[in-house]
């Protein structure tokens, strides 16, 4: 359940950032029921960010705050750098898009993973 909550917030924050961050534009804006590639992008990045703590646990790596922060930073900034090179429903047109978008996604996903780490250490 903690993982699902982490996945949900990681997905929603990417969705939010794609719409409000300067330098980021949705190329094919469509409403449900036509789900377009920006939703696929949000789901993919959200899934990767939410999987940091479970992956560390599966790999038997000792969980530390720094390790979580580094993995989340790599995924968040990396995803926006990739779509700056290859637009995929979402387009990054300047460096502000990568910096602002990546930072917001990084902070929120780190916060979600940190809470998951705490809940795991309490065994809930």
């Amino acid at each position: 359940m903690t993982y699902l909550r982490s996945l949900l917030i990681s997905f929603l924050i990417v969705f939010f950032v794609n719409r409000i961050s300067p330098g980021i534009y949705i190329t094919h804006y469509q409403q449900i029921p036509t789900v377009m590639s920006d939703i696929v992008f949000c789901s993919f990045v959200g899934f990767l960010n939410a999987s940091v703590v479970p992956c560390y646990s599966i790999l038997d790596v000792r969980l530390t705050t720094i390790k979580i922060a580094i993995a989340n930073a790599l995924i968040s900034y990396g995803a926006f750098i990739v779509i700056a090179i290859v637009p995929f429903g979402v387009e990054v047109i300047n460096i502000a898009g990568i910096l602002v978008g990546g930072s917001i996604v990084w902070l929120v996903s780190f916060f979600a993973n940190y809470l998951e780490k705490i809940s795991r250490s309490f065994g809930t």
């Binding site: 929603l12 969705f15 939010f16 719409r19 449900i32 029921p33």
Partner: peptide, 16 residues
Amino acid sequence: LAYNFLTVFFANYLLM
């Protein structure tokens, strides 16, 4: 607050 804010934002932007 973050969950609720993002849920409302999501609903406003995506739902027909």
